[in-house]
Simulated assay, not measured.
Amino acid sequence: MSRKSDRRQARDAVSAYHRARLAELVAHVADATDRFRAGELDAFEVDQVLFQYSRAAKELWKFCNVGNVGNVAFHLREEPPIDWWDLGAPRSW
Rank of each mutant, 00 (worst) to 15 (best):
residue 74 F to V: 00
residue 71 N to M: 04
residue 52 Q to V: 08
residue 35 R to P: 08
residue 85 W to L: 05
residue 38 A to V: 04
residue 62 K to R: 15
residue 37 R to D: 06
residue 26 V to Q: 15
residue 11 R to L: 12
residue 63 F to P: 01
residue 55 R to T: 11
residue 50 L to V: 10
residue 1 M to P: 03
residue 79 E to A: 08
residue 64 C to Y: 01
residue 41 L to K: 02
residue 27 A to H: 10
residue 16 A to P: 07
residue 35 R to C: 10
residue 65 N to W: 05
residue 66 V to P: 03
residue 14 V to Q: 04
residue 89 A to R: 15
residue 5 S to M: 03
residue 55 R to D: 09
residue 55 R to G: 02
residue 4 K to L: 11
residue 13 A to T: 14
residue 39 G to W: 12
residue 45 E to S: 11
residue 34 D to F: 04
residue 88 G to K: 03
residue 62 K to N: 11
residue 2 S to I: 06
residue 92 S to F: 02
residue 89 A to N: 06
residue 69 V to H: 02
residue 75 H to K: 01
residue 7 R to M: 02
residue 72 V to L: 01
residue 31 D to P: 01
residue 28 H to W: 08
residue 7 R to K: 13
residue 69 V to R: 01
residue 12 D to F: 06
residue 45 E to R: 15
residue 29 V to P: 03
residue 77 R to M: 00
residue 10 A to G: 04
residue 79 E to D: 09
residue 57 A to W: 01
residue 39 G to N: 06
residue 67 G to E: 07
residue 73 A to M: 00
residue 52 Q to C: 11
residue 21 R to I: 01
residue 2 S to T: 15
residue 20 A to S: 14
residue 17 Y to C: 05
residue 62 K to Y: 09
residue 87 L to E: 02
residue 58 K to M: 12
residue 26 V to H: 09
residue 91 R to M: 10
residue 70 G to P: 02
residue 71 N to A: 07
residue 92 S to Q: 14
residue 88 G to N: 03
residue 88 G to Y: 04
residue 2 S to L: 06
residue 60 L to W: 02
residue 41 L to A: 06
residue 57 A to E: 12
residue 49 V to G: 08
residue 38 A to L: 08
residue 25 L to S: 09
residue 45 E to M: 12
residue 24 E to Y: 04
residue 41 L to W: 04
residue 91 R to I: 09
residue 81 P to D: 13
residue 92 S to G: 03
